[in-house]
């Protein structure tokens, strides 16, 4: 694996209701598209698997909470770009059909 660097980035949950079931679905759906391991960490808790909707939900990340996104694997750079964009866009990116 040439690209085995671990990427870390802080992301903010902008969604009004926090990392609610819909944002969780969006994150997990997107994360699953990549081979890399994608994890999210809140405060100092142990990181959770971003491909598991249950893990994401169990973060109970409220609005404006800061999370650390950690991506590790062959397509990590790309995954990091897309995932942080998703957080930036308030979870709208992957479903352009959704009218806000």
């Amino acid at each position: 694996m040439s690209d085995s660097q671990v990427y870390r980035r802080k992301v903010t949950v902008k969604a009004e209701q926090g990392l609610h079931i819909r944002p969780c679905t969006a994150v997990a759906q997107l994360a699953m598209k990549f081979q890399s391991r994608v994890r999210l960490m809140k405060d100092t808790n142990s990181p959770v698997d971003a491909k598991s909707i249950l893990d994401l939900m169990s973060l109970a990340a409220g609005p404006q909470s800061e999370l650390e996104l950690e991506v590790d694997g062959p397509d990590a750079a790309e995954a990091m770009e897309h995932l942080s964009a998703l957080f930036e866009s308030d979870f709208m990116t992957p479903s352009p059909a959704v009218v806000p």
Partner: peptide
């Protein structure tokens, strides 16, 4: 979406 979530 809610069903998508349930499915996951």
């Amino acid at each position: 979406m809610i069903f998508t979530a349930h499915l996951m």
